[in-house]
Amino acid sequence: MRGQDGTDAATRASTPVAFSVEQLAEVHRLQGLYPDRRAALLPVLHLAQETFGYVSLEVEAYVAALFDLTPAHVHEVVTFYTLFFRAPKGRHIVAVCHNLSCHLAGAPMIVAHLRRRLGIDVGETTDDGRVTLQSVECLCACEHAPMMQVDDRYEFGLTPEKVDRILEGLR
């Protein structure tokens, strides 16, 4: 099992950290949208995570250089937000809401079911790198509790059977 401090960082880090020419143009465009180009930091970090898989220290330093910021500043920003990963993550992120309305609708049972099915704890990634499991605060879809986010998608009205079906669809 691989925790948040994933052990195969070395293998992934061998891909060079650099945006393509098109991506650099996009960085430039994003920076031009704001009165202060540094405001594009979050959008560019999103782009970096999509491109490099996660935001390593190397990625932080690379992004910092694109903004004339110190790597320390970028690090402080990256660590503040929950959507940036600082270690390799699974190919899919399964984030179950554990806040009040979902709790009232059985979220603890859904979390337990996911842990059993995936054989990992919250915060871990399956050995095959398929899924990272998270337990998160209110995703603001409480009318469909219990619910979870799978990558970009919201999945509503969860039951153990529905969870199984969703997991089967993740490759």
Partner: peptide
Amino acid sequence: VVVHRGAGAYICGEETGLISSLEGKKG
């Protein structure tokens, strides 16, 4: 109009936290 994406932090809903975050800082 510029559409800006946050990155996960409840406190960025507070208006001055939101502004800090919009400026590219922690919220």
